[in-house]
Design a binder for these strands. Structure first.
Length: 524
RNA sequence: GGGCCGUUAGCUCAGUCGGUAGAGCAACUGGCUUUUAACCAGUGGGUCGGUGGUUCGAGUCCACCACGGCUCACCA
């Protein structure tokens, strides 16, 4: 780890002491910049490499010298230093871009030169100077003023390779972010940690714009709740001292948002964290970001159209192409599929078991479902009801094939305690899940707004709970009361934002799209 | 929770068959006023994740533990 006391850390403390002795503040309060490094790099990109002959060099440098009246003031962290006797080059970073500075003893003066020699990689400095292009063609700042801004007391990661240790990258994300701009070779199109999180911010911004433009209002509902319900999951429990009651970190905002529809908000969305007390994996973090939105007078078919529009728009905006790489796949966002769960089972039924392939009707028949599970050599709990069994068969047969965006519809009622039943066939609900790259990205349905039926569904969930399923939903009496005041026909949807960001940034692990993923406590 | 892999200098990594712990970067000393993974010469830096065991001798073999990665199961 980077925090052990060693010769390098002692040396940096000595340098800081010496800087103070030279009369500089150890931690000065501010620095006036005229530009950011990123803006200079962007603006003068085209000058890069312009130095084929001396004549052109002189002309280019004469032009650059006037930029910003020759008094461009920049600040950043020192990423590389190359000392050459009485002159030096260094690269400064503002986190996003790097610019080379050129320091010459004659130009900065004795005092600043002395300061420069007490600087270490990772220190923050402010500089003033004029732009020029070096012999080797790099746009650089020839400085005549140097100000110390803050010390890096711990040694920087390898300037070329950066940080490879994933544990260190997740636990000390700040180090990952510092080093992710390192020169290290990356595969074509591979993003740095910083770029991933910048894209994540763009995606979240674009989602909010999308819903704001369509007349939704963004709301915030409780994160600490007396009941953990609205999803099938185990909650985190905490305790409220003043009230002396248990509180649960929410597992979903769903029931609160629908109360708002009852209250007369026709379109609401919430984009925030849910908490589920479950294991960690490449696709699961105990807290994750969920978008939920509800729209009165709409049904789940409307939301399929809306979802397609939302995600296609995001892909266009963030990726610039509808065919995007994701790990070993190419995802085609111009090719959306809609299948019922049973159709998907038939479509992806394994070739070598064609003789045992069930029919569409079979998949609603207990004996045939069990035969199908047996043919697939699927172990299953005989207590599972028909709906669960179909869900298991679907997950096994079809899910691995769902690479391009696919809406799966016609979910068994037993699997969907908050969804409205299909008008023609009450064994199924009007619900879909969206799968992309084998991941479940979205879940939506026409909302059950019959309070009596909702009460029956909760009671069924409670029976399953008593039967040992500690993820079955908890009864929410106040929600029944709210529905009893009348909720208009409504459709609602949840979209897992972390997973969507994974897709759009080609990240394999959810930990790579969460700044501070959950980790076991560090070993002491 | 199960299986597989990993943990060596501040960072990135070698370390053969069990026989005195290695490189590059970073640091230190000296040189160098357009370098760029700067360069040249020299120097220091290690509880080899931890604890036991086998052995004359363990970074290396064995057991257990910790942390991480991948994977299976569960889940969004």
């Amino acid at each position: 780890m980077l925090t052990q006391d060693n010769d390098q850390i002692q040396q940096r403390h000595r340098h800081l002491d010496e800087i103070i002795q030279l009369g500089h503040a150890a931690y000065p309060h501010r620095f006036d910049r005229t530009h950011t490094i990123s803006s200079i790099v962007m603006q003068y990109q085209s000058y890069h490499g312009k130095r084929e002959d001396e004549g052109e060099a002189a002309r280019v440098n004469e032009e650059l010298k006037g930029a910003g009246n020759g008094k461009i003031r920049l600040a950043g962290r020192i990423m590389q230093m190359r000392l050459m006797g009485k002159a030096a080059f260094a690269h400064l970073s503002d986190g996003g871009a790097r610019l080379q500075i050129y320091v010459r003893k004659n130009d900065v003066g004795e005092a600043a030169w002395e300061l420069y020699n007490k600087l270490d990689l990772g220190d923050w400095i402010g500089v003033e100077g004029f732009l020029f292009v070096t012999k080797t063609g790099e746009v650089s700042l020839h400085i005549h003023e140097l100000q110390f801004l803050a010390k890096g007391l711990l040694p920087m990661p390898d300037k070329y390779h950066g940080v490879a240790d994933k544990e260190l990258r997740y636990r000390q994300r700040y180090v990952d972010l510092i080093a992710s701009g390192a020169v290290q070779e990356r595969a074509e199109g591979e993003l740095t940690a910083r770029e991933v999180f910048v894209k994540r911010a763009q995606i979240v911004r674009a989602i909010r714009d999308f819903f704001d433009e369509r007349g939704y209002i963004e709301v915030e509902t409780p994160m600490l709740t007396p009941l953990a319900t609205g999803a099938a999951a185990r909650p985190f429990v905490t305790h409220h001292n003043a009230l002396d009651i248990p509180l649960y970190a929410r597992i979903a905002p769903e029931l609160y948002l629908k109360r708002l529809i009852v209250g007369g908000f026709e379109r609401v969305y919430e984009l925030n964290r849910n908490f589920r007390n479950e294991g960690l994996s490449i696709r699961h973090n105990p807290e994750f970001t969920m978008l939920e939105f509800y729209q009165a007078y709409a049904d789940f078919n409307d939301l399929m159209d809306l979802t397609e529009e939302l995600i296609t728009g995001l892909v266009d905006e963030v990726c610039g192409s509808r065919q995007i790489p994701y790990q070993e796949h190419t995802l085609d966002f111009s090719n959306w599929q809609r299948l019922t769960m049973r159709e998907a089972v038939l479509k992806y039924w394994p070739d070598h078991l064609q003789d045992k392939k069930p029919s569409l009707d079979d998949l609603m028949n207990r004996a045939a479902l069990e035969a199908a599970a047996a043919a697939l050599e699927l172990g299953f709990d005989p207590k599972l009801n028909d709906g669960y069994l179909l869900g298991e068969i679907f997950a096994h047969v079809a899910e691995p094939h769902l690479i391009n965006p696919t809406f799966i519809t016609e979910f068994p009622t037993e699997l969907s305690p908050l969804s409205k039943q299909n008008a023609n066939d009450p064994r199924f609900v009007d619900r879909f899940e969206l799968f992309i790259a084998q991941m479940e990205i979205a879940n939506a349905f026409s909302e059950l707004n019959d309070p009596a039926e909702q009460k029956r569904r909760f009671e069924e969930q409670m029976r399953q709970r008593e039967g040992g399923d500690d993820e079955a939903m908890v009864m929410d009496e106040d929600y029944i009361r709210a529905l009893s005041y009348g909720m208009p026909p409504t459709a609602g949807e949840g979209i897992g934002i972390d997973r969507l960001v994974m897709l759009l940034t080609n990240q394999r692990s959810i930990r790579d799209v969460i700044l501070f993923p959950h980790m076991r406590p560090e070993a002491k």
